[in-house]
């Protein structure tokens, strides 16, 4: 084997070893907080409440509303809820805490970008959250007769890809917010603002079909529908293949944009770090 190939193999081995160990550590950590994660899941029930509101509206309108009947509303809002659950991120809060309290110091001393710790925390948390999501989804499909999340396994695979990208949008967006803690006393205020925007614009309140065309046109230019609305549409099989491709490319573009922004903010912000109290 050529020396270059051996180095490459060594790098891959090291990466695999780091990933495996960090996964094991953070998974163990997250299982300690399984009850708290379940309670936290309950705080994200807006799509489930909106599901009953919209089904009620459809029933009052003779059973359908803009091509949505009770089963399709149920499918959409269940998918929206799943998307929301799988894109949950709290890294802004963590970074804010670490920067303000000096907890970032011990992370900066290690030869690995502190971002990876957050990635693994979030990734492993999904494995604890997953079984609860499954229970909710199965229960949800029984509540409204005829509800089918997806008719096709391909949609599930597409959804799995898109939801990872959607998570990265939200995660990196929050990383940017967290990095602002290098300049501001408390950057979580920005996160609260983003949360409000996301609640109204991501599609958790209503499918974008029900937004006024002018507002929808604006919303389409934001990253929010790519976190909940479009993943939900893919999971319910209501996007054409070409639309799915378009969504994937735009989602990827948002990931890249926030990734680059995070790198720039981090590079400048780290020089402002005061390592207070640590």
């Amino acid at each position: 084997m050529k020396p270059e190939a051996r180095i490459e193999l060594g790098l891959l081995e090291n990466m695999w070893r780091k990933s495996r160990t960090m996964f094991a550590l953070w998974f163990a950590h997250m299982t300690v907080y399984r009850a708290e994660i379940f309670i936290w899941m309950l705080s994200g029930v807006v799509p489930l409440i909106m599901m009953s509101v919209w089904i009620g509206k459809a029933s009052a309108n003779g059973g359908t509303l803009e091509k949505f009947d009770a089963a399709s509303f149920a499918a959409y809002f269940l998918a929206a809820w799943v998307s929301q659950q799988l894109t949950v991120a709290w890294v802004a809060w963590e970074m804010n805490f670490q920067i303000r309290q000096g907890e970032l110091s011990s992370r900066l001393l290690r030869p690995i970008d502190p971002l990876w710790e957050h990635v693994f925390r979030h990734f492993t948390e999904r494995f604890v959250r997953g079984p609860f999501i499954l229970v909710f989804v199965i229960a949800g499909t029984f509540v409204v007769p005829g509800t089918k999340l997806t008719p096709d396994v391909w949609h599930v695979l597409e959804f799995l890809l898109v939801i990872h990208l959607a998570f990265l949008i939200r995660f990196l967006m929050q990383c940017c917010v967290g990095t602002l803690s290098f300049w501001f006393e408390n950057a979580t205020a920005f996160d609260e603002f983003l949360y409000v925007l996301q609640t109204f614009l991501a599609g958790g309140f209503a499918p974008l079909e029900f937004y006024p065309p002018a507002i929808r046109a604006v919303v389409e230019w934001t990253p929010f529908p790519y976190m909940v609305y479009y993943p939900a549409k893919i999971l319910t099989g209501t996007l054409t293949p070409s639309e799915t491709w378009r969504v994937m490319l735009i989602t990827l573009a948002w990931v890249l944009a926030f990734g680059i922004l995070r790198s720039i903010l981090w590079r400048f912000g780290i020089k402002k770090y005061g390592a207070v109290g640590a």
């Binding site: 780091k18 160990t21 960090m22 550590l25 950590h29 300690v32």
Partner: peptide, 14 residues
């Protein structure tokens, strides 16, 4: 929340 040995293993990898 975890034993110190878990943190040691992470340091070994990192």
């Amino acid at each position: 929340d975890l034993p110190a040995s878990d943190s040691f293993l992470v340091n070994q990898a990192i």
